Amino acid sequence: MRIVTTLLLAAMALLAACNTIAGAGEDISKGGQAIHRGAEEAK
């Protein structure tokens, strides 16, 4: 029973990490887009 519990907890941690990394990637992408727009407006 401990093995099953450990595996479930590990799976949940991995899924949470994937969501966090995906969210960070989206935030970085939005930041890059904002910088690009600012550079285009400054031309």
Rank of each mutant, 00 (worst) to 15 (best):
E40Y: 05
H36Q: 13
G25Y: 12
S29P: 00
A39I: 08
T6G: 05
E26D: 09
I21W: 05
G38W: 02
A10N: 06
L15F: 11
A24P: 00
I21F: 09
T20N: 11
A17V: 11
D27Q: 07
L14D: 02
G32I: 14
C18D: 08
C18A: 15
E40G: 02
T6R: 13
G38Y: 01
I3G: 01
L7C: 08
I21K: 07
T6E: 13
Q33F: 10
L8C: 07
Q33N: 14
A10T: 07
L7G: 02
D27L: 06
G38A: 11
G38C: 03
M1S: 07
M1Y: 05
A10G: 04
T20L: 15
T5P: 00
V4P: 01
L14M: 15
A16M: 14
A39K: 10
M1G: 02
G31E: 05
E41W: 10
M1D: 00
L7E: 04
A17R: 09
I21M: 13
A10K: 08
A34N: 03
Q33P: 00
L15I: 11
R37G: 01
D27F: 03
G32Q: 11
E26L: 11
T6P: 00
E41P: 00
L8R: 09
I28S: 03
H36F: 14
A10S: 14
V4M: 15
I35G: 01
T6K: 13
R37T: 02
A11P: 00
R37K: 11
H36T: 05
L9N: 02
A16D: 01
C18T: 10
I21P: 00
E26K: 06
L14C: 11
V4D: 05
V4R: 15
T6H: 10
S29C: 12
R2N: 14
L14R: 04
E41D: 13
T6N: 13
G31T: 09
S29D: 08
A22D: 04
E26A: 08
L8E: 01
A42T: 09
V4N: 11
A34Y: 03
I28H: 06
M12T: 03
Q33Y: 10
G31V: 07
E41A: 15
S29N: 14
R37Y: 02
E40F: 08
Q33L: 15
I21N: 01
L9Q: 03
L15T: 04
K30Q: 10
G25L: 15
M1K: 11
